[in-house]
Write a protein that binds this DNA or RNA. Structure first.
Lengths: 193, 193
DNA sequence: AAATAATCGTAAGCTTGCTTATTATATGCA
DNA sequence: TGCATATAATAAGCAAGCTTACGATTATTT
């Protein structure tokens, strides 16, 4: 069967193994700004708090309101580093409040995406809390989706984006929005055999 | 509104303008094997016939059966260079036969994808007849999706794929399947202002 | 000819994604 | 206080995407 996108079981179970993000590669490709993948043992409470704080700053700067539902939707996404479908978000929120209607979640997602706090993973019809707070909204971001644990890392815009756009332009095409989603196995899952 | 994927209006109307696929680019990026985009005035009958002939060869080589529905589904996809959703395919087929059930179309699509004759465009939940008959099934293909006319071109695996994989590996990620879908405006639509 | 496997059709239904109302509740400000 | 704007909730529903179950064909093999 070749279908995809519906079944994202994803075992969120804790894993051992430390992350050792390569700084330089055999083929000489330079490492990027920061490790794209969240280590399984990272301080998640902190990482969540940071992201929420960042969201508050962004909203304040833009004079946008970071309302409770918006915060809760972002919180639900932050609770894992996995992309969640809209209905998964609803299920998640239903645990701690009256089950919100789809429209409520979609509005919050629209808001969060418009403000660069959340990405949409096209190949999964799912949403992901944005990890890299420093990429400008116009440039492409590549997502690394681990098919084992379901976690998603980001590669911030880098040389590949230039190449990609150049390749597109070489056939006369004017690229605008790029969707780059790479499925594979993350460092941590590789170590588990 | 940030939604996408449902409304693919797509005017298939004939267009003027000749394709002049750039061979070399200002930034020195070399042109790829063949023009990625189908010119609006290309010999579509021929292109369809070629693709069907190719499909027959492939199936024979693999001792697979190229049955009527499979041919018809491929034919429906070939009738445009646009990606079609499963239900659009059903609508298309309904014009020339008894409306097929979803399962029927999905089965044919599974077959066609398994044999490399059709691609799935993840960001649209849609399917596209494969244009480049020479890319090996493992390597990445980038799709160029024109937001004006809806046509889709392919960039066969090239240098960018290497870079992309290298970038992924540089964070310890083992890439398998890459989804690279670039939205923008194609040569022909650019010329129409 | 019988058995097996592959393919196809019919019928039904489920989940997800997303939308359209319409009405309420804040929030700011004049 | 009154009014406007932004935000949210409630209710209902559509359509796309995909699946399960099962019986009927049609090859293919033995």
């Amino acid at each position: 069967m070749l279908s995809r996108g519906r079944s994202m079981a994803g075992s969120r179970a804790a894993r051992r193994a430390l992350g050792s993000p390569a700084e330089m590669l055999e083929d000489g490709y330079m490492s990027l700004a920061k490790p794209a993948f969240p280590a399984p043992d990272h301080d998640h409470g902190r990482c969540t708090a940071d992201a929420l704080a960042h969201a508050e700053v962004v909203c304040e700067q833009r004079a946008q309101k970071f309302t409770p539902i918006r915060r809760q939707v972002l919180g639900a996404l932050l609770s894992s580093h996995r992309p969640l479908g809209a209905y998964e978000i609803i299920d998640e929120l239903a645990k701690s409040m009256a089950r919100p209607a789809p429209i409520t979640v979609y509005r919050a997602l629209d808001f969060l995406m418009a403000n660069g706090l959340v990405h949409r993973i096209e190949s999964r019809n799912a949403y992901l809390a944005c990890a890299a707070h420093d990429h400008d909204s116009t440039s492409a971001v590549a997502f690394l989706i681990c098919e084992r644990c379901g976690l998603v890392g980001e590669i911030p815009s880098s040389s590949f984006a230039k190449d990609l756009n150049a390749a597109a332009r070489s056939s006369g095409f004017a690229p605008k929005l790029s969707v780059v989603e790479i499925t594979g196995v993350c460092t941590h899952c590789q170590k588990m055999s």
